[in-house]
Design a protein around this nucleic acid. Structure first.
Length: 275
DNA sequence: AGCCCGTCCTGAGGGC
DNA sequence: TGCCCTCAGGACGGGC
């Protein structure tokens, strides 16, 4: 499941593969992936050049010539890769961008949860999802003061707050469990009850964790690969996610798994206690 | 405003 | 072997 480090890894890899390429045509095999009118989407992209690719939270922002931006969210299993027209389209490929040089950018998504939206650059600021997004965790906009203020507004549990993207952008289920373990905070602890010390530790852990995960090319748990088909390596540095039944690396207590906000959640029951 | 829940999807894995 | 059921979950819209 691509979270910020995986999306950033995809962005960098993808940029190296498709920058400056010109789109000839677009094939759409599962129209629900495109939230615009499919025919308009296809027509608008004809002849456009991919100038760069940006990222905001877990969203990829393809910047095209003529002031067009395509917002793309991979959700659970979305993947991009470069291919040639002679390779048969597999059943999980839903959108194909045909370039004028004969190569293709293919979007595959087993679950079909991913979405793409095209508009005039800047439209993404008012797109639901991006408009309400919290600060980028690796930018100066993510301050301890702002983080503290945002946490005070919520009485729901800290894990749900970190997951919902409004307080800070980019964390998903895996990195939430990891940073909470690092800071010894119980995922059900109400956000507005965290101490200043805990908030400071969480703020730091989020940044270190995401930076380290980006450096490792992201985390491959089920199926994540980057734009070149390479797996990430950060799964080797996970402390709690997917480790239920195994001893905590710090204290030896058996890691437990239960549901929080509808998500599988992993904790060390000794070190992460609800207050 | 905040919060919770249903929805979208398919493949993997368990039970019998 | 094969079938059925459950689980995995990010974001969003609707309802309270």
């Amino acid at each position: 499941m691509p979270e910020l480090p995986e999306v950033e890894t995809v962005r960098k890899g993808l940029l190296a593969l498709v920058q400056d390429k010109t789109i000839a045509t677009v094939d759409v095999y599962w129209p629900k992936i495109i939230t615009n009118d499919t025919a308009k989407f296809q027509k608008a992209l004809q002849g456009k050049v991919i100038e760069t690719i940006d990222r905001r939270g877990k969203y990829l922002l393809f910047r095209f010539s003529d002031n067009l931006t395509m917002v793309s969210h991979l959700r659970m299993e979305g993947k991009y890769h470069l291919d040639t027209a002679v390779t048969p389209i597999d059943k999980h490929t839903h959108v194909v961008f045909n370039f004028t040089d004969g190569t293709q950018l293919r979007y595959a998504d087993v679950r079909k949860f991913g979405r793409m939206t095209l508009g005039l650059t800047g439209f993404e600021q008012s797109l639901s999802g991006i408009a309400a997004l919290g600060p980028e965790p690796l930018s100066k906009a993510f301050t301890i003061a702002g983080f503290t203020q945002a946490l005070k507004k919520h009485h729901k549990n800290i894990k749900a707050v970190l997951l919902d993207q409004h307080t800070v952008a980019g964390l998903g289920n895996i990195y939430c469990d990891e940073v909470l373990w690092l800071c010894k905070i119980h995922p059900l602890q109400p956000a507005d009850t965290l101490t200043a010390k805990e908030i400071k530790a969480l703020h730091a852990a989020i940044q270190i964790e995401l930076k380290t995960a980006i450096a490792a090319g992201g985390t491959t748990i089920r199926s994540y690969v980057d734009a070149s088909g390479q797996q990430g390596h950060f799964q080797l540095q996970l402390h709690v996610y997917g480790r239920e039944g195994q001893p905590c690396e710090r204290c030896g207590t058996i890691i437990e798994k239960f549901k929080v906000a509808g998500r599988g959640t992993h904790i060390c029951p000794k070190e992460q206690q609800l207050r």
